[in-house]
């Protein structure tokens, strides 16, 4: 049989590592973006409150809204993670497919 299982396995692992490494920057950028934006909003709320441009009640409600914003952001991170997992799985399957095609070519 002309299928070197060890080499195929090594190629699959390399393909998965490559995908996860590339896609991690998407997760990192999204997370950093959300955190920076959150910091900006909290600072804005504090400055509006201190300038008495919003009431204490309004200020507290907007702070409470940060929980909903976080929930939405976590959904985005979950989806990006699924994109990463999908890409890694399909990269692994593509490596396997190519290995089998090569092996068939050798046998025939």
């Amino acid at each position: 049989m002309s299928l070197d299982i060890n080499q195929v396995f090594a190629d699959v692992v390399a393909a998965i590592k490559g995908e996860v490494k590339d896609d991690w920057s998407i997760v990192k950028d999204a997370t950093n973006g959300f955190l920076l934006s959150k910091q900006g909003r909290i600072e804005l709320l504090i400055s509006l409150r201190m300038a008495d441009e919003i009431s204490d009640e309004f200020f507290k409600k907007r702070l409470a809204d940060e929980k909903d914003i976080l929930q939405s952001e976590l959904s985005a991170i979950a989806l990006i993670s699924k994109v990463t997992a999908q890409n890694a799985a399909n990269a692994a399957l593509n490596v396997l497919q190519k290995a089998v095609e090569t092996a068939i070519g050798t046998v025939l």
Binding site: F34, L48, R62, I69, N87
Partner: peptide, 28 residues
């Protein structure tokens, strides 16, 4: 002050929706 705060929050609610759709363009 209230309008500024509401707008900031709404942009924050839009951001994940846009990020999610853009992430799908990277799916293979």
């Amino acid at each position: 002050g209230e309008l500024i705060a509401y707008n900031a929050d709404l942009q924050a609610f839009w951001a994940p929706v846009l990020v999610e759709e853009q992430a799908l363009s990277k799916a293979r």
